[in-house]
């Protein structure tokens, strides 16, 4: 299916003709309480947010669930959204990151509990990357986040700073410590997932 090319022209609104397509910031500004406008943003970004969560967690089912949570939370938060100049997707990724961190905490707790009962199990993942996700899962949430955004999502330091709402220098130093911690975890398991 080819992607539709569409324009909205408000004929009696000077200078507004030929918006193609309507920018995220303009849509977001009027999407609070308007399910149709919000629906456009959701359709535009769901795949990207789900993809980020998939690369972050390594678990497709969990990623889809968290992506849905992200958009339901975004709907609730839209009245408080302010265009800061950062891409709208950065705002969505911040919500997605919070959801992923919450899920990671729950997963650690679950493993601790079932581990005590002698039935610890890991979610199904590709053998190819399972080792990485096991090691990532043992890192602090802020370390998992910065590695996911920079190394798995491919964001620049500046873009990562926009998502996290911190200074670029903070991202750099946090990334350095996160990489050290991840390398240590990988060395500790020595290839054993």
């Amino acid at each position: 299916m080819t992607q539709a090319v569409w324009t909205i022209q408000a004929a009696s609104e000077p200078g507004s003709g030929g918006l193609a397509p309507c920018p995220d910031s303009a849509l977001a500004a009027r999407a609070a309480g308007d399910p149709e406008q919000f629906g456009v943003l959701y359709r535009r970004h769901f795949g990207a947010v789900a993809g980020y969560l998939y690369r972050r967690t390594g678990d497709a089912a969990l990623a889809e669930d968290l992506a849905a949570d992200t958009f339901l939370a975004a709907w609730e938060a839209l009245p408080r959204y302010r265009d800061s100049g950062a891409p709208f997707r950065a705002w969505l990724l911040r919500i997605a990151t919070n959801r992923a961190n919450l899920a990671a905490r729950r997963e650690r707790l679950r493993r601790r509990v079932v581990g005590l009962l002698g039935r610890a199990s890991a979610p199904e993942r590709d053998a190819d990357t399972g080792e990485l996700y096991e090691a990532l899962g043992r890192l602090r949430a802020d370390h998992q986040t910065v590695i996911a955004l920079v190394h798995l999502e491919g964001l620049s330091v500046e873009q990562t700073a926009q998502v996290l709402g911190v200074a670029g220098g903070t991202v750099k130093s946090r990334l350095h410590r996160a990489r050290e911690a991840l390398r240590g975890e990988l060395a500790r398991t020595g290839g054993r997932p």
Binding site: Y42, R43, G47, A50, G154, R179, R183, L186
Partner: peptide
């Protein structure tokens, strides 16, 4: 080794749908 693993994970495209039944129902 760490960079190789990160690179492999980074290359993983989203295998699921571009819509969520739960969000569609909510909307």
């Amino acid at each position: 080794r760490m960079n190789e693993l990160l690179e492999r994970a980074r290359g993983r495209a989203w295998p699921g749908p571009d819509q969520s039944p739960r969000v569609e129902e909510f909307l």
